[in-house]
């Protein structure tokens, strides 16, 4: 048994123990997402239009993440719509800015790793970096949207109607703490993942100006900042959508 298989089994068991049926469904949604991601890479490598493939698989990943793990119709619908809106906004932001900043492909630091390859492989690396950026923000926005929507639904259900302003205040309270934590998840996730790079850069005595301009560092920072922007947007939009939804719930009662 390989280590990956072992860890996957442990995760599956723990998820089912913690969440029962729902945990099992969450695990399946992770498997589906992984398959989709893998398929996306294969399709792009096969030469299909990169941005179209990315956009379609992004919508599928959002739908799987939000709907499959959660049965509450109210919160999932709100979260899904909010994430779609943010995905649209992010495309408008990422496409021009990534072109201007020229962060595609590989950096000089990676040249050792890829020296055996001929890089003229006829793939648009600029479109690939857009794929990378959009996909890596998806998880964070889906998570923030679902956390706020479920937190607010729980509060509405447990304590009843106290008016829009009170609800918005509760939403912002949750949103604020979630945002801080999501930033840290992103930060720890990405910089933790690049620990080896930081150690290398420090050993090379990189200057401050180098950090602000080098492709490897700027592209990593860009992904973190894009994700942060997407999360702020999704918190805002989810709270407002949730308030609109709350009106409908109270009317029905």
């Amino acid at each position: 048994m390989t280590t990956i298989t072992g860890l996957t089994i442990v995760l599956a068991v723990l998820m089912i123990l913690s969440g029962g049926r729902r945990g099992a469904v969450s695990f399946i949604s992770l498997l589906l997402n992984f398959t989709l991601l893998f398929l996306t890479v294969i399709l792009i490598a096969g030469g299909l239009p990169i941005l179209t493939v990315t956009f379609l698989s992004a919508i599928c990943i959002l739908a799987i993440t939000i709907y499959l793990g959660n049965n509450e119709e109210t919160e999932t619908n709100v979260a899904f719509l909010a994430t779609l809106a943010v995905l649209g906004i992010m495309v408008l932001l990422v496409v021009p800015l990534d072109h201007l900043a020229q962060i595609q492909g590989f950096s000089n630091e990676e040249s050792e790793e890829i020296e055996a390859f001929n890089l003229a492989i006829g793939v648009n690396f600029e479109a690939i970096v857009i794929t990378t950026t959009l996909l890596s923000t998806l998880g964070a926005i889906a998570e923030a949207a679902i956390a706020i929507a479920s937190g607010m639904t729980e509060i509405i259900r447990q304590t009843g109607d106290h008016g829009d302003e009170e609800l918005r205040k509760s939403g912002r309270n949750i949103g604020f703490q979630i945002m801080g934590m999501t930033f840290n998840t992103l930060f720890f996730g990405m910089f933790g993942g690049n620990l080896a790079l930081f150690i290398l850069l420090y050993k090379l005595h990189a200057s401050f100006g180098y950090y602000l301009n080098s492709k490897i560092f700027v592209s990593e920072l860009f992904v973190v900042i894009y994700s942060a922007i997407a999360v702020i947007l999704v918190i805002w939009i989810t709270i407002e959508f949730m308030i609109l939804k709350a009106h409908k719930i109270y009317d029905r009662k």
């Binding site: 992770l30 479920s150 996730g189």
Partner: peptide, 9 residues
């Protein structure tokens, strides 16, 4: 409810 989405991140 956040477990799945969070692992996904």
């Amino acid at each position: 409810s956040i477990m799945g989405p969070l692992i996904n991140v």
